[in-house]
Simulated scan of single mutants.
Amino acid sequence: MYQPLKIGELTAKLPIIQGGMGVGISLSSLAGAVAAKGGIGVISTAQIGFTEEDYDKNPLEANLRMIGEHIKRARKIAGSGILGVNIMVATKNYELYVKEAVKNGIDIIISGAGLPLELPSLVKGTKTKLIPIISSLKGARVLLKLWDRKENTAPDAVLIEGPKAGGHLGFTLDELENHEEQAYQKEIEEIVNLTKEYGDKYGKDIPVITAGGIQDKKDMESYFSLGVRGIQVATKFVTTEECDAHPRYKDAYIACKKEDIVIVKSPVGMPGRAIKNEFIERTFLGKIPIKRCHGCIKTCDPKDTPYCITDALVNAARGNLENALIFCGANAYLENRIRRVEEVLGDYFD
């Protein structure tokens, strides 16, 4: 059995968060649909303005403008449902993205791709709830300790993205290749206990949410038995009618086989999980020339990067798959048809 997911004074009828997928995969249509059905819908802010005419000239302005626009669009679909945004810590001008989301009344900010150490100070005095993404007990200890010491606060929930998740991963290649499920489950239990300590200190309930390869109700309940109280699901929502992705992107998931899903090295400096295609094969042959810098990632230097991560992901969102990086979760090959959001939720909840 499951219970509603409470994050501060917010209560999601279903204990599920739809994972934020960028560029352009989880925008207002998908996020609004999930929120309307009782889950937590999430908009990815990664290069969210790529559809705007001025994006190439003014990427930052286009991105900030479309954060507000997609939140408004999602609200119309979601009604009273709960909405969040996913903002990567590695994003250039990270603080501007956070403030723009807060200004537009977002309920939750989910933040990873680095530890969001400064996030509490950026939303201080607002109602926006904070969910940092961590991948290990070590990461949880560092984040909780620093938020406690420097910001005198604790998260509203903690999200553990496991080794079967899609997109950028907070693990080394060796950790991904030699993953031991039993050891991972023990680490989850330790993170649950750790968050309880900080929850007790601040007089708040801090639910732990897990993500990565959670395929059905059985998987979900196995994590609940460890003390987890919510799950995040992304890949399974890609092949829905409501997903913002291009039809060719969805078709790539439906067509892929298990052996097509590979770990790639991203210009962001983290390993990522994607569907093998012509573009990935070309990255093995040498540097792919970069036409312009979109100012997306703090750590990227156009002179040294093997290819432009923004161009590769925007191409994916536009359906130009021959020149695209197609991020996915470990179980993408199991998705074999287009469904509606309600049907995907039915895999977990009666």
Rank of each mutant, 00 (worst) to 15 (best):
P116T: 01
A113G: 04
I106G: 04
L119K: 06
P116V: 01
A165S: 15
A154G: 03
K129S: 05
K138Y: 08
L143Q: 04
I106S: 04
K164T: 07
D148A: 10
D107V: 02
R141Q: 14
N152V: 06
K129H: 09
A157V: 02
N152G: 14
I109D: 03
A140E: 01
L144A: 09
E161N: 05
D156S: 02
W147T: 01
I134A: 13
G166F: 00
A140W: 00
P155S: 07
K164M: 15
L144G: 07
F171V: 08
G162Y: 11
T153I: 01
P120L: 14
L173G: 04
I133T: 05
F171N: 06
L137D: 10
I131R: 08
I134S: 11
T126V: 10
R149K: 12
S121Q: 10
P132H: 07
F171Y: 15
L146T: 14
D107I: 00
F171T: 09
R141Y: 08
E175D: 12
K127F: 01
D107C: 08
G170H: 11
N152F: 10
K124E: 06
N152D: 12
L144W: 08
K150H: 13
L130Q: 02
L144M: 14
L146R: 15
L169P: 03
S136M: 14
K138S: 11
R141T: 08
S111W: 00
L122N: 06
G114C: 10
S135C: 14
L143S: 07
T153G: 09
S121K: 15
K127T: 05
V123W: 06
G162V: 13
K150W: 11
I160C: 14
K124D: 00
D107H: 10
S135L: 10
E175C: 06
R141S: 14
S136Q: 13
I134M: 10
E175M: 09
E118A: 15
F171C: 09
K124C: 00
L144I: 02
I134Q: 08
L159T: 02
I110W: 01
L143C: 10
G105W: 01
N152A: 12
G114I: 04
G139E: 15
L146G: 08
D156E: 04
S136W: 11
L115K: 01
L144N: 13
I110E: 03
I110A: 06
F171W: 05
N152L: 10
I108T: 11
K150P: 00
V142C: 01
E175S: 09
I109S: 03
K145Y: 15
T172S: 15
L115S: 08
D156G: 03
L115Q: 05
E118C: 12
D174W: 11
L159N: 04
H168R: 11
G105Y: 02
L130K: 00
F171I: 08
L117Q: 05
G112I: 08
G170D: 03
L159Q: 07
I110G: 05
G105K: 06
I106M: 09
L143D: 07
K164L: 15
D107W: 06
G125C: 07
L130M: 12
W147P: 09
K129R: 14
D156P: 00
E118D: 13
V142K: 12
K127L: 01
E118H: 13
K150S: 12
F171M: 06
W147M: 06
I110T: 00
P132L: 11
G170Y: 10
P155E: 05
E151G: 01
G139F: 04
V142D: 02
T128R: 07
